[in-house]
Deep mutational scan, measured.
Amino acid sequence: MMAYMNPGPHYSVNALALSGPSVDLMHQAVPYPSAPRKQRRERTTFTRSQLEELEALFAKTQYPDVYAREEVALKINLPESRVQVWFKNRRAKCRQQRQQQKQQQQPPGGQAKARPAKRKAGTSPRPSTDVCPDPLGISDSYSPPLPGPSGSPTTAVATVSIWSPASESPLPEAQRAGLVASGPSLTSAPYAMTYAPASAFCSSPSAYGSPSSYFSGLDPYLSPMVPQLGGPALSPLSGPSVGPSLAQSPTSLSGQSYGAYSPVDSLEFKDPTGTWKFTYNPMDPLDYKDQSAWKFQIL
């Protein structure tokens, strides 16, 4: 009977010793046993002879290597770790002494450095960015050149030099007046198309007034536009458009034309069986010896 009264063996659950049927240790109110408190290391007290050895090595170098620390530790009968900690504390003490010396050398008012006064946003004049500046400075420094007289040679050079070769001289006033084509001369031969040399188009003023001019072949195509416009036809070669000034309004060009419109200028042929003959000019830059190549039959 006494065997049943004795408590059973101890069981360990999660490293906790349980005594038989008792489960009081598993209750929430019972805390787990805490780790033992780490003991504080005792402070090391250095003797005068030990301090002399350490100070002598510190005077040589503030960062001794492990071999120098072990050698000193053997002399003063201390572990190497204590020597390492002593050098660490000695360097910190040396830095603190240097900072105190710097503070003593500075004057009393030198510690508080005078800061520059901050400028207020409204006091300083700042350039306004509302208006974009002129990058080319046209509004201040540029002045347009004065327009020359209508009959000045410089204007003629600016007008005619675009179309004339570089080897030719500017046309005088008398020749510029001949550039304007007359109405009857352009409409006299509506079906004849003559190819003149390129030099005649640039230099010869008579080429624009003769039936064999460069633009005589364009007349049949330009004249039928007159009834559609409801007024006189516009002429690209009329009046002052080739003269001194090219800047004319469309209203000033509306009254200039080749001449009176005639039914002869239409595109319809009077004789459907007729042929169109292209007159060959020996001055043509295209060297075609066979003139029969310039004739064709309209079917």
Rank of each mutant, 00 (worst) to 15 (best):
R115F: 01
L253F: 07
P272D: 03
V30M: 02
D134W: 08
E80K: 11
L222H: 01
L57F: 10
L74E: 06
P144N: 06
L171C: 05
E71N: 07
G8V: 09
G230N: 04
P147L: 06
G209K: 12
R115I: 01
W276R: 00
P7H: 09
E168S: 03
Q291M: 09
G255F: 14
E55Q: 04
S249D: 02
Q297T: 12
C94V: 03
Y195E: 00
I138E: 05
E70F: 11
V131Q: 05
Y208M: 06
M225K: 03
Y214V: 02
S49W: 10
H10K: 05
V13C: 01
M2C: 00
M225A: 02
V83W: 13
A56C: 02
L146T: 05
P144Q: 00
T129G: 05
A192S: 08
A247S: 01
Q84C: 07
G178W: 15
V264G: 06
T154F: 14
P133T: 06
S262C: 09
Q175Y: 12
F269C: 00
A166T: 02
S241L: 13
A121M: 03
P172V: 08
V13M: 07
G183C: 07
S182E: 06
S203G: 06
L16E: 00
T61D: 05
V23G: 03
S139G: 04
P7N: 01
S139E: 02
A114K: 10
S213L: 13
G8N: 02
S161A: 10
L51G: 10
F269Y: 01
F269M: 00
T159W: 15
F58N: 14
C132H: 08
M193A: 02
E52A: 04
A156L: 14
L222M: 08
L267N: 00
T47Q: 02
P190W: 14
E55L: 08
R126L: 07
G148S: 09
E173W: 15
L16F: 10
Q62H: 06
N14M: 13
D140V: 12
K93E: 15
P147Y: 04
S185P: 02
F201R: 01
V66I: 04
A114W: 01
L267G: 00
A35I: 08
L229A: 02
S254W: 14
G151C: 05
G122Y: 03
A174Q: 02
R119G: 02
L74M: 04
P244H: 07
P224V: 15
C132L: 03
R82E: 14
Q248T: 09
P79T: 08
A233M: 08
P31Q: 08
S22Y: 14
Y221H: 02
Q99G: 04
Q248N: 02
A196P: 03
G109K: 10
G255W: 14
F201W: 09
G274D: 00
P211V: 08
Q111H: 02
Q256P: 08
A68C: 10
P250W: 12
